[in-house]
C-alpha cells in the first residue's frame, strides 16, 4: 500500500483508541473489519471489582462498552470529525464477568441526523451468553 494513502476510518478509530488516555488505561483495543468491529478487553488484575470472586468491575465493563459503541458510531459516520458525544446510556448486568478476556460488538439501532441509538454487547466464552448489554444515545450532528 502506498504510504501517502490518507488514513482510513479504521485507522482513525485505532488512533482514537490509542490517543485516549482512559481507553489505554482500560487496556482495550479494536479489531476493525470494514464497517464491522470487535473490541477486546484483555483481563488484567486491576480491572477486578470483587476480589473474593475475581469478577471484573461493572464500571470497567460499562466504560469498555461505552467506548465500543462510540467507536462503532465513529466508524460508520463519515461526516464526523471526532468521536460522538454520549447523551445517556443504560447498562444491563446479566452475568458475572470472570477473570478472562471480554469481547464486545456494537450495533447501530437507528442513525438519525442529530442523534443515534446504539446497542453494545459484551461476552466472554460464548457470544450467545452476553455478560453485559449497553444501550446508548450519541449526538452525531449539530454540536
Amino acid at each position: 500500500m502506498p504510504s501517502d494513502t490518507p488514513p482510513s476510518r479504521a485507522d482513525e478509530v485505532a488512533a482514537f483508541i490509542a490517543r485516549t488516555p482512559f481507553a489505554q488505561e482500560l487496556g482495550m483495543h479494536c479489531e476493525v473489519m470494514g464497517d464491522e468491529m470487535t473490541a477486546v478487553l484483555p483481563f488484567q488484575d486491576k480491572l477486578i471489582g470483587n476480589v473474593a470472586i475475581r469478577a471484573i468491575h461493572g464500571g470497567a465493563i460499562g466504560a469498555f462498552l461505552e467506548i465500543t459503541a462510540m467507536a462503532q458510531v465513529f466508524l460508520v459516520t463519515e461526516h464526523l470529525t471526532r468521536p460522538p458525544r454520549p447523551i445517556n446510556l443504560t447498562i444491563d448486568y446479566l452475568r458475572q464477568a470472570h477473570a478472562k478476556h471480554l469481547y464486545a460488538r456494537a450495533t447501530i439501532t437507528k442513525m438519525g441526523r442529530r442523534m443515534c441509538s446504539v446497542q453494545a454487547v459484551a461476552w466472554q466464552d460464548e457470544k450467545s451468553k452476553p455478560v453485559t448489554i449497553l444501550m446508548a444515545h450519541f449526538m452525531v450532528g449539530g454540536d
Binding site: 485516549t20 482512559f22 481507553a23 468491575h57 464500571g59 460499562g62 466504560a63 461505552e66 467506548i67 447498562i91
Partner: peptide
C-alpha cells in the same frame, strides 16, 4: 475526565 470513569464511580 472520561464518562466511563463516572460509570464506575457512580456505580
Amino acid at each position: 475526565i472520561h464518562g466511563g470513569v463516572l460509570t464506575a464511580f457512580l456505580d
